[in-house]
Nucleic acid binder design. Structure first.
Length: 887
RNA sequence: GCGAAAGUGGCGGAACUGGUAGACGCACCAGACUUAGGAUCUGGCGCCGCGAGGCGUGGGGGUUCGAGUCCCCCCUUUCGCACCA
């Protein structure tokens, strides 16, 4: 053992050993109950590891080590979400082909992962861009096509007219092209969709199965995203025409209060309007305003135009006007609503603005007096209504329905509409079908062929994969670069053999990530996406770890994909992930000064900047320490691959070692909190490791002579008993903390144990067998518990303590704790007088209530406070406190 | 606007089902060892007070022998949804 702790040396040594021994390579085997699938969201191979990655994978790696040491067969794989735009951007900017660029990045990042010492089974690596992977994307697509779950429809995309190219939502944010600033248009193109809406109900209902293991917040977001809403369609006849306008409402019970039908500005019924030119101009203006709006979807002031059309309320027979309104969305429901200002906030606002009548038809249920029936002849019954009454209640002024409760009326009126043929009860969802077409090069080609004679023809399974060409023209303009590769486009029809054209759209990269973790179970299979038995052994995933930003997209898609896989017999469960943990972001304080060149900024290392904060913790002033001059201050910025201000993990590894870096990110904050990166803290982590190292080095030789079992150790003196108690208590705490991924407190507990070891009085050369036993037991437990956080050092110390074969191959086991030893022998009891802490007494842990009370009352300080007072009562909480109430 | 979560020292954060608030660490202060240290070790470290003691978990009220924890009102922050009919 070296005199000092040299992380680089130790880490290199063990990374090599792990590689040679295949320490992290696993196969299906053992009992299913003793297997554990630990999964972290796979990264996009940008080429650089950032602290967010380090955090994400340190969390999973620690859990994997913990389970392995507990004797589980642990699958902990890694792969690459390697399709997607940045590779095409690199091609446009630097002329390097996407495949080459991606492979280089993967090489680089894999090396970085290895330097971090993450315990991945690299033989199982998958990468979305490799044909042996995307072949199965295509295979799944064909299965969906067979089941009618994949279909084509015309749908609007964001289109930059200046460049003639399709943009993603992100690229067209603010309604302008991110590159040239031209106003983005909506253009209709035919695109492929997957019918996720067929699964809307299941996606909601099956949340029951994962409620216990998923963060409430994620489930809520998914629930909102799916947006189930039960109500009814009702048809309003348009007077003097054969047309009907269908509206969707959840509150059909309020229909007698409808003062208008309001349609979206581009609703087809507008064609019938005598003032359709006005409405068209209105629609145009609304569209323009939306495009110019800074935040898309932000609420605008309600506006509308009276179309001059009249509609018949099918329940009451009332004739009401048809308006076009900017607050009615084309995309939701039927693009038309009935406006009931008395009982809907938006309609109320609209009615106020245009002075439309407000008719109250729902009253709060009152048990004292029956609701007042209002005179139906009087239009404005908004007496004392300052806002809409949106609760359920009792119907009034509603013809035969008056007197009914909202709940009953909603059901019965829906049924009534159905029986009369002017409506139906219905459930709608906000969830849309999943558009998977991308007019891009770097994605899995959609495996269909267009033939003049046969139409849309699926590529036969035997012809998969439809390979991406190696090269293409990348200009950033026009349609998918694939369309410019004749060898790709021109093919023959699989059905009739005639000349045909391939689909040039590729799939959304979320397709790749919807099922990748099944492929890890059987990554080399070339006859099927995976072997059913292998997947049955490993899945569902026991613990999934990733960022909240995937709460709806990825995590909803993968649930959908799993249900589809179940329906075609590939898996036998409903939900792919039992437990989900969403870790917080790593954020960095960045400081910059505007540079010489316009728009350029000079960044400073946060460690060199002295900060003054206000009482809210916000930065008020920052001073560059090196030269004492003030610099301007930036807000906290998210450290991410797109930000060039991140902390480079390589620098951390070089300065402190991978072990200290890992330990620190897990210790610095609870895993679900955001972590503000402050380099100052990391030396604390390194210091801890150094002290563990020094302790082992000091005791190593003496411990070799420690008795092998308790029996041989003899009697334990008080101090050794105390140490054993600390050891067992710490093992208990750390073990429990692991179950809840509470790494910060687990590390704190280990630090306490080291402090206890440091306080241990005996010196190695003169320690008694019992003392040696206690120290050895403690140190070994500490080293084992350290393995998930600092695996290199743990291996090194485990070896130094005389164990051979390494932690995993050598059969080391997570320490067990003895319940009895984990309990204290003697406890400190707080003594309160009238609820105020006045003293502390020590009593045996098993002291009776009476004995505890007596000890408390006998305490000198307590007596000073109770002297001459009457003791009204005493409350004794065994093992905790005594409260003496005096008067 | 609606919904959810959260407010604890200078900072990150502990505190099991109501029971000793501030574990552990960072930063800071003092001392030791050093030619030196941004290394290491020892001690201190919520606020006020010389002290006894008092105050203290965003603010206000309540329940209780006892409240960071439970209840009510308010404030602030973060996140999500944002005209979803």
């Amino acid at each position: 053992m070296d005199e000092k702790y040299f992380p680089a040396k130790i880490e290199e040594k063990w990374q090599q050993r792990w590689e040679e021994s295949g320490a992290f390579e696993v196969e299906a085997g053992a009992a299913r109950e003793k297997r554990f699938y630990c999964l972290e969201m796979l990264p996009y191979p940008s080429g650089f590891l950032h602290m967010g990655h380090v955090r994400n994978y340190s969390i999973g790696d620690a859990l994997s080590w913990f389970r392995r040491l507990q004797g589980y067969n642990v699958l902990h794989p890694m792969g690459w979400d390697s399709f997607g735009q940045p590779a095409e951007q690199a091609a446009i900017k630097r002329g390097v082909m996407p495949r080459e660029w991606t492979e280089q990045n993967i090489e680089h990042m894999r090396a970085q992962f290895k330097r971090m010492g993450f315990s991945f089974d690299w033989r199982r690596e998958v990468a979305a861009h490799r044909p042996d992977y995307y072949k199965w994307d295509q295979w799944f697509f064909l299965r969906m096509l067979e089941k009618g779950l994949a279909y084509k429809k015309v749908s609007p995309v964001n289109w930059c007219p200046a460049e003639g190219t399709v943009l993603s939502n992100e690229q067209s944010s603010g309604g302008v092209c991110w590159r040239c600033g031209a106003a983005v248009e909506k253009r209709d193109i035919e695109q492929w969709f997957l019918r996720i809406t067929d699964y809307a109900e299941q996606l909601l209902a099956d949340m029951r199965e994962i409620e216990a293991g998923w963060p409430e917040r994620v489930l809520t977001m998914q629930r909102n995203w799916i947006g189930k809403s039960s109500g009814a369609y009702v048809d309003f006849q348009i007077k003097d025409t054969a047309e009907r306008v269908r509206v969707f409402t959840t509150r059909v019970d309020t229909i007698y209060g409808a003062n208008a039908v309001v349609v979206a500005p581009d609703h087809p019924v507008v064609e019938r309007s005598p003032v359709r030119e006005d409405v068209r101009r209105f629609a145009e203006r609304v569209r323009a305003e939306r495009a110019a709006a800074r935040e898309p979807g932000a609420a605008e002031e309600k506006e509308g135009v009276n179309t001059g059309l009249m509609a018949v309320n099918p329940f009451s027979g009332d004739l009401i006007p048809v308006w076009a309104g900017n607050y009615v969305l084309t995309e939701y429901g039927t693009g038309a609503v009935m406006s009931v200002p008395a009982h809907d906030e938006r309609d109320f606002e609209f009615a106020q603005k245009y002075s439309l009548p407000i008719r109250r038809v729902i009253e709060r249920i009152s048990y004292e007096q029956p609701p007042a029936e209002r005179d139906p002849a009087v239009e404005d019954q908004s007496v004392a209504m300052h806002e809409a009454f949106t609760e359920y209640g009792i119907l009034v002024s509603s013809g035969d329905w008056s007197g009914k409760l909202s709940e009953d009326a909603i059901r019965e009126m829906g049924e009534f509409a159905e029986s009369r043929g002017f409506g139906e009860r219905a459930v709608t969802y906000r969830l849309r079908d999943w558009g998977v077409s991308r007019q891009r090069f770097w994605g899995a080609p959609i495996p269909v062929v267009y033939c003049d004679g046969c139409g849309v023809v699926p590529v036969p399974d035997g012809d998969l994969p439809v390979m991406l060409p190696e090269r293409a023209e990348f200009t950033g303009a026009g349609e998918s670069p694939l369309a410019g590769v004749p060898e790709f486009v021109n093919t023959t029809c699989p059905k009739c053999g005639a000349a045909a054209r391939r689909e040039t759209d590729t799939m959304d990269t979320f397709v790749d990530s919807s099922w990748y973790f099944f492929r890890y179970c059987d990554p080399k299979n070339d006859g099927a996406p995976f072997d059913g038995e292998k997947v049955a052994y490993w899945t569902p995933v026991d613990q999934y770890i990733g960022g909240v930003e995937h709460a709806v997209m990825h995590l909803l898609y993968t649930r959908f994909w799993t249900k589809f896989m179940r329906d075609i017999g590939l898996v036998s469960f409903n939900e792919p992930v039992k437990r989900l943990m969403t870790q917080g972001m790593v954020v960095a304080e960045t400081f910059y000064r505007e540079g010489e060149d316009a728009g350029s900024r000079v960044y400073f290392n946060p460690a060199d900047v002295d900060v003054v904060r206000d009482d809210k913790g916000r930065i008020r002033e920052a001073t560059l320490i090196s030269d004492g001059h003030p610099v301007s201050v930036g807000p906290f910025e998210k450290m991410s691959k797109s930000a060039n201000n991140g902390v480079d993990p390589n620098e951390m590894i070089e300065a402190y070692g991978a072990d200290a870096t890992r330990l620190f990110v897990l210790f610095a904050a609870p895993v679900e909190n955001d972590l503000r990166w402050q380099e100052a803290g990391i030396n604390g982590a390194q210091n801890f490791l150094r002290r563990v190292y020094a302790f082992v080095r000091r005791w190593r030789e003496a411990l070799a002579g420690a008795p092998a079992d308790v029996g041989a150790a003899g009697d334990f003196p008080a101090e050794a008993r105390r140490l054993r108690h600390e050891t067992h208590r710490t093992v208990e705490r750390v073990t429990n903390d692991f179950e809840g991924l509470r790494y910060n407190t687990a590390v704190a507990a280990m630090m306490e144990l080291l402090n206890a070891l440091g306080d241990f009085k005996a010196e190695p050369p003169s320690a008694s067998p019992a003392e040696l036993f206690a120290v050895r037991e403690s140190v070994e437990a500490l080293v084992l518990m350290l393995a998930p956080f600092a695996p290199h050092l743990a291996e090194e110390l485990w070896e130094a303590l005389g164990h051979v074969g390494g932690l995993l191959r050598g059969g080391a086991r997570w320490p067990a704790f003895d319940e009895a030893l984990a309990r204290k022998e003697e406890v400190e009891i707080a003594v309160q007088v009238n609820g105020k802490l006045r003293g502390r007494v020590n009593v045996p842990a098993d002291a009776s209530e009476e004995a505890t009370r007596e000890a408390a009352l006998a305490d000198e300080r307590v007596r000073a406070w109770t002297e001459g007072k009457q003791v009204v009562k005493t409350v004794v909480v065994p093992g905790r406190l005594v409260n003496v109430v005096v008067k």
